[in-house]
């Protein structure tokens, strides 16, 4: 176990930011912490890193208790915070080199690792630039390079793609996969379910400081009753036809607006075939049809009754 958090409680006066939070991160995995803004993701990360005092619970990293002076543990951790943490007065190279040198004593090793980190985030053309001259995406990449240059065993990324353009976002996500492939264990927090779904091997869904569910994305989707979402471009549907459609097997809800029929069905076989059969038998004109498997947002919606982005 790389990280083991047990019954973590953090209060801000009367507000309970973390409510008996439990997390287990296995070696070599990309662990996602998914939750809406204000759900307690960053608080949890700050507690894990001993940047915040907590009221109750235990945190172990690499099998040892984590504390502010656990420097041997800190040596193997890389952190990429939500906000860019670099010195404006230093160049790209100097920033990466400085943060790397806090972990590595050998000068030539620092140089080599700095070069590798620059290559890793593709900032070769910007080594002499100051952060102010970099675009938002490049700045995020610099932030990542500063966090991973010393080749940590555990990398914690707290919403690293906030306000990043799609191109840079893809670059960052690819980089994270590569870091994991090179052997690093990753903890990735985000409120973007697509990112977490794309990246993480295991996910904990968190809300109001509590872990609501943990598992692989398939395990999480399997936890809910929603099977698939069928969307049909159907013309001039009558009230009775919509009523009859809603009575089809496994249909849990149905909505029709602007010639668009959206059917949410429960888990079961041939849900789409039943809908198509009905449309054909009743000679209902229809156009495009597409189905969508449940997303993590659906999982979150079913568990909490609200959308991830609410």
């Amino acid at each position: 176990m790389v990280v083991e958090v047990k019954n973590l409680v953090k209060r801000y006066d009367k507000l309970v930011a973390l409510d008996h939070l439990n997390l287990n991160v296995e070696e070599g995995e990309i662990f996602g912490l998914l939750g809406p803004n204000g759900s307690g993701k960053t608080t949890a990360i700050n507690c894990i890193l001993s940047l915040l005092k907590y009221d109750k619970g235990t945190i172990e990293i690499f099998g040892k208790p984590m504390s502010p002076d656990a420097y041997d543990i800190k040596r193997d951790i890389g952190i990429i915070m939500q906000n860019v943490a670099v010195f404006e007065e230093l160049t790209v190279y100097e920033n990466i080199s400085y943060f790397c040198s806090l972990y590595i004593k050998d000068k030539s090793e620092v140089k080599r690792l700095t070069r590798e980190a620059i290559e890793f985030v593709s900032l070769e053309d910007f080594t002499k630039f100051h952060p102010k001259k970099l675009s938002g995406g490049l700045l995020r990449r610099l932030n990542i390079a500063c966090g991973i240059a010393h080749k940590p065993k555990l990398i914690i990324l707290d919403e690293p793609t906030v306000a990043v353009d799609p191109q840079s976002r893809n670059k960052i996500l690819e980089g994270i996969k590569k870091l994991n492939a090179d052997g690093a264990t990753i903890i990735y927090t985000s409120h973007y379910m697509e990112e977490v779904e794309q990246l993480c091997s295991r996910i904990s869904i968190i809300d109001k400081g509590k872990v609501l569910a943990t598992g692989t994305k398939d395990e999480l989707k399997a936890m809910i009753s929603l099977g698939e979402k069928i969307t049909v471009e159907a013309y001039n549907l009558r009230e009775e036809e919509i009523e009859e459609l809603s009575r089809l097997a496994n249909v849990s809800s149905i909505e029709y607006a602007d010639n668009c029929l959206e059917i949410k069905s429960k888990k079961g076989k041939n849900n789409l075939i039943h809908v198509l059969d009905y449309l054909q038998n009743h000679e209902i004109n229809f156009g495009k049809i597409y189905t969508q498997m449940p997303t993590l947002n659906d999982v979150f919606l079913e568990i909490t009754g609200k959308e991830l982005r609410d």
């Binding site: 890193l49 940047l51 041997d72 800190k74 860019v84 943490a85 010195f87 943060f99 972990y103």
Partner: peptide
């Protein structure tokens, strides 16, 4: 620069005391 909360956090999670 050193008091900047983000930089201070980065320094605090490093092995430097």
């Amino acid at each position: 620069s050193f008091h900047n909360i983000n930089i201070r956090r980065r320094n605090l999670v490093s092995p430097i005391t």
